[in-house]
Design a protein around this nucleic acid. Structure first.
Length: 374
RNA sequence: GGCCCCGUCGUCUAGCCUGGUCUAGGACAGCGGGUUUUCAAUCCGUUAACUGGGGUUCAAAUCCCCACGGGGUCACCA
């Protein structure tokens, strides 16, 4: 959890570990015992022979929730509930109540699943004579079946999303918008902007389904506007050899960083690194039946490309010299076999971008190879 | 089952408090199209919702009641 928070860029000012605070809890427990607000109860069932129970006054408790308004409970059904196994081992409800007070917590903001825990915590507070913090119970994040999000719905921890190549900024932005909305049409929010605009008053009451398609879209937005150097750093682990040109091309085609790995393993990116294999009939554009025509076109393309200086082998320059020929022969007739010779794929990026990435020598090699196949 | 919370497009939501401006707005996804050599990207367009029933009112998505539906919680866990 600590690692997850750090990754998300959520920081804290103070940190407490309950296991290091047993002396504090013990003091409060003894106070309750002494005042008769709690008692040691001999048990017939359970794990220990005796436990500490709170003397429940069996009254109605109501509290004002910042999000839901007034909530009322009859605490009779709670009976004299257990607050500690013994003086050295308090239970959660007791420990949090003590901690909140000791540490000066003013607002308790937590999931809706804690609503029914609230009355028993209030009962402990009152027995201890401690002030009641302000409560705000926020809606739960739901799985696709509308039940509380859990392992069986998908990834079990925040760090899994890191591993999948989601950016922390995107996840934060996404989660913030689950149950909250600024009331404007702004969708992309940085942490700073969230801190500035977020308000409990605008929080929704009902739970929100974790919709991965929307996270993917948001993540893509963040990838698109990422700093090139940073992006390079993120992408490197997912693709063996790459450069800024390949990365630029890749970033339009992925939702999350790990998509690159999938693209690569599905051999769709191999053409960047080695001569692709394909059937020679693949070189034919749509209605074209005659491989000889295609061979002639390839020959002409080679001739044109040879005329481009290797030092100025940019997509713009190449396009300028090839374009008149595509106008003459029909774009598909020229560009389809060109692209196929370079990538060997039915679907791939624009041949001009690939040309620039591969460089003059490799391009000519592949074109000769295609010609030779025919 | 008891108690508690919730209920607007498939999803996230705006609107609800302070009824009329809501023939219910936006975004994601979907679908259709433009651009284009294919894909991606991009641009444009489009399908789709007030859970139901009563009531209050000249007027209800908005206020009230009931029903139904969904969820949470019922530990010597946290």
């Amino acid at each position: 959890m600590i690692n997850s928070l750090k990754w998300l860029g959520i920081n804290w000012d103070e940190f407490y570990r309950q296991s290091e605070r047993t002396e504090i809890y013990k003091k409060y427990l003894e106070k309750l015992l002494k005042e008769g607000m709690a008692y040691i109860s001999e048990e017939l069932e359970g794990n220990s022979k005796s436990v500490i129970r709170l003397r429940n006054k069996n009254k109605k408790i109501s509290f004002d929730d910042l999000i839901r308004g007034k909530i009322e409970f009859d605490t009779t059904e709670l009976s004299d509930f257990v607050i500690a196994k013994n003086k050295e081992t308090p239970l959660y409800h007791f420990a949090v109540v003590v901690d909140d007070s000791e540490v000066g917590v003013t607002h308790v903001i937590r999931g809706e699943d804690h609503i029914s825990n609230t009355p028993r915590q209030i009962l402990i507070q009152e027995a201890l004579g401690l002030p009641r913090p302000i409560y705000a119970h926020i809606p739960l994040i739901l799985g696709s079946d509308r039940s509380k999000l859990s392992k069986r719905h998908g990834e079990s921890s925040v760090m899994k999303y890191k591993d999948l190549g989601y950016l922390p900024e995107a996840l934060v932005n996404f989660i913030a918008f689950l149950g909250w909305n600024p009331g404007t049409e702004k969708e992309i929010y940085s942490m700073e902007e969230l801190i500035k605009d977020f308000s409990l008053k605008k929080i929704q009451k009902s739970g929100a389904i974790f919709n991965i398609a929307r996270l993917d879209w948001l993540n893509k937005e963040y990838i698109k506007k990422a700093d090139p150097d940073e992006l390079k750093e993120w992408i490197e682990p997912y693709i063996p050899k790459s450069n800024s040109k390949i990365i630029n091309l890749l970033k339009e085609r992925i939702n999350k960083l790990s998509d690159i790995k999938n693209l690569y393993e599905a051999s769709e990116l191999n053409y960047f690194f080695k001569q692709p294999e394909y059937e020679k009939e693949k070189l034919l554009w749509r209605e074209e039946k005659d491989l000889i025509n295609t061979k002639n076109i390839l020959e002409k393309i080679i001739e044109i490309i040879k005329s481009v200086d290797a030092k100025n082998f940019t997509q713009e320059n190449i396009k300028t010299v090839i374009w008149p020929y595509t106008e003459e022969k029909g774009r598909g007739n020229v560009l389809w076999p060109l692209r196929m010779a370079l990538t060997g794929l039915d679907k791939s990026p624009d041949p001009f971008r690939v040309l620039e990435i591969l460089g003059k020598i490799e391009v000519l090699k592949r074109l000769e190879y295609a010609k030779m196949k025919i």
